[in-house]
Write a protein that binds this DNA or RNA. Structure first.
Lengths: 221, 221
DNA sequence: TCAAAAGTGTTAACTGTACACCCATGC
DNA sequence: GCATGGGTGTACAGTTAACACTTTTGA
């Protein structure tokens, strides 16, 4: 018999920076230290349920891309007793940032991915595993869109990819590639309040993607 | 507090056919039914340890590609009590087939992937998830080699890919692509006893792959 | 007018794909 | 000789990568 928990690795994107959501523990021996938001697995729920419940309790967010990442089970990963944790990763839009209602007894904060504080237990390892998966997945599936606002410009999209993959890409070629996939719907709407030519806004077309996928289409880069 | 188990999804390849290794349960309410070889997680071991231990106990095999697949936690996936299982997947070579020492009270057998018997619990779901992962992984990482004998011909390799991906590929183009990656070492050795021109044998060069990977090389198809 | 980013066009190099073909071997 | 698979060559189409260029806008 063992103790099982879930931990959520929540990615967000603000100002072309990839960020993750952390909570500062308010009690126990990890008091005052930052870690991933997590909770115990309850009797009547699956790990997936528990992850979604935890996300909702801690942030108020309900409708997101949430996927199982890995189960961490080293015998001594947790002090004193043995705890097995299943990590999930979630991608959320900037619009959701403001919906977050802080916990009563926990401080919560977004951290840029390259400015993380020291984390409790093996949470650093979890973050690294998640980052690796994100980098891989973002190239082979159109999940990057889940980190952007519903309406976005091609440059925002490009910046996001550059932030996640830590590379630079050629603007004209990137635009062409994206447009050719037919997954972006150009909106009758432009950026406002920018000190340069306003860019067209686009949205991701989930339906078209699902349709293409059944025909064997695979998203790449 | 919950019960945790591991289940191993063991892939093999015999005569151009992808197969998985199953055991027939000898006791309990699942007696007489086929399922994945698994066991309880013990106190002093990680899930990875448990999976390797189970593999060794059931087949005698120790040195294989073994990776965590997914953790299955539906509340009613197991009859009577709640059991959470973490599935692993393993790829083994034909040479290892003969090392398998049957259990005293369990019948064991390899099944071609498209001729599986009815499986206990949610093991069918586990197999499907594993197959999906195998199909994906085999295209993006050179793990297919782990299913072949140490020395293999290019046609064997091609047949393997065709079996896993359920497609046909052009022979000349496949050969060229593989050779260009520099991951195959041609051996001073040929097939024997075949009723046609003997093919050259190759082995996979793990070292070169690791070296190339650090330089940003990514295996594709 | 300038800076900043939007957006278009044009090349050359490289890859993927299809298919024609010759080679070696056992029966 | 013929069936079977080993193995090479080639040529076109399509894609990628690099970069020069014009356009629009607010300050």
């Amino acid at each position: 018999m063992h103790n099982n928990t879930v931990d959520n690795l929540i990615f967000g994107c603000e100002e072309d920076t990839l960020e993750i959501f952390l909570v500062k523990h308010g009690q126990g021996q990890s008091r005052g230290k930052w870690g991933l938001p997590g909770d115990w697995l309850l009797e009547g729920e699956s790990l997936e349920n528990a992850a979604a419940r935890t996300l909702k309790e801690r942030t108020g967010i309900t409708d997101v891309y949430l996927e199982q990442l890995h189960t961490f089970s080293d015998v001594d990963r947790y002090p004193d007793e043995r705890v097995i944790t299943t990590a999930f990763f979630a991608l959320i839009r900037p619009e959701s940032y403001k919906t977050i209602v802080g916990e009563t007894e926990m401080e919560v904060k977004w951290f840029p991915i390259n400015k993380l504080p020291k984390l409790i237990f093996d949470h650093k390892e979890i973050v690294e595993k998640g980052l690796e998966k994100l980098k891989h997945k973002v190239r082979h599936e159109p999940i990057g869109f889940s980190l952007l606002p519903k309406k976005f410009t091609l440059l925002q999209l490009q910046n996001l990819y550059e932030a996640i993959l830590e590379t630079r890409v050629d603007k004209p070629n990137f635009r062409r590639k994206m447009k050719k996939m037919q997954l972006l719907v150009p909106l009758e709407e432009k950026q406002v309040g920018v000190a340069h030519r306003a860019a067209n806004l686009y949205r991701f077309d989930e339906k078209v993607y699902r349709k293409l996928k059944t025909k064997g289409f695979v998203f790449e880069l």
